[in-house]
Amino acid sequence: MSGPLSQVLAAFVDGATSLDEVAVITGLDRGVVSTAVDHLRRMGRIDVKELAMGCPGGGCGSCASGTVDGTAGCGSHGPSQSRTGPVLVQLSLRR
């Protein structure tokens, strides 16, 4: 069996679109997948592109990490221009 880096890279080649999907496909722990993606990025094998910054303009209620009652799910006391919660990224293979 190949190592974690090869398994993670192969999962992306086969069409995986998220770290959770890679973990399911490979059977690797989510933390191992995250570490492998970071290493593959540093090696120049995959690109990571940030798709969003800071809090959404609609406040905590419109944020993906917001709670049902409209409060911040990231632990922030309210909307902020600094990054305190999840950041959406796009992972792609370098050709």
Rank of each mutant, 00 (worst) to 15 (best):
Ser65Asn: 08
Cys55Asn: 01
Arg83Val: 00
His39Gly: 00
Cys63Gly: 02
Ala52Cys: 07
Pro86Trp: 02
Lys49His: 11
Asp14Phe: 05
Leu91Thr: 09
Ala52Pro: 01
Leu28Trp: 05
Leu19His: 04
Pro56Asp: 01
Gly58Gln: 11
Ala23Gln: 08
Pro86Met: 02
Cys74Leu: 01
Gly54Leu: 09
Glu50Met: 07
Gly27His: 07
Ala16Lys: 06
Gln81Gly: 05
Val48Ser: 10
Ser6Cys: 00
Leu19Gln: 14
Ala11Cys: 11
Met53Asp: 12
Val68Leu: 15
Ser92Lys: 06
Phe12Asn: 02
Ile46Leu: 13
Gly85Arg: 02
Ile25Asp: 07
Arg41Ser: 06
Ser82His: 12
Val13Asn: 08
Asp47Ile: 06
Leu40Ile: 00
Gly59Tyr: 07
Cys63Val: 00
Val22Glu: 02
Gly58Cys: 11
Val8Arg: 02
Arg45Ala: 13
Ala72Phe: 03
Ser76Tyr: 05
Met53Cys: 03
Asp14Thr: 01
Asp69Lys: 11
Gly73Ile: 02
Glu50Arg: 12
Ala11Phe: 03
Glu21Gln: 14
Ala72His: 03
Leu19Val: 01
Ala52Asn: 12
Asp29Met: 04
Leu19Arg: 12
Leu5Pro: 03
Val87Ile: 08
Ser62Arg: 11
Met43Gly: 11
Cys60Val: 01
Arg41Ile: 00
Val32Ala: 14
Ile25Asn: 05
Val13Ile: 10
Gly44Lys: 03
Thr84Asn: 13
Arg30Val: 00
Gly66Asp: 03
Ala36Trp: 04
Gly85Ile: 01
Leu93Tyr: 06
Val33Phe: 06
Thr84Val: 10
Ala11His: 04
Leu9Met: 05
Ser18Met: 13
Pro56Met: 00
Gly58Lys: 12
Gly66Ile: 00
Pro4Thr: 06
Gly73Cys: 10
Gly85Ser: 07
Arg42Ile: 00
Arg95Thr: 12
Glu50Ser: 10
Val24Lys: 06
Leu91Pro: 04
Ser80Tyr: 06
Met53Arg: 14
Gly31Ile: 00
His77Trp: 12
Ser34Thr: 13
Ser62His: 09
Gly57Ala: 10
Pro79Lys: 10
Gly70Phe: 14
Gly3Asp: 13
Ala36Tyr: 03
Leu88Lys: 11
Val48Ile: 13
Gly66Met: 05
Gly85Pro: 07
Asp38Glu: 11
Leu28Pro: 01
Thr17Cys: 12
Leu88Cys: 03
Gly59Val: 04
Thr67Glu: 15
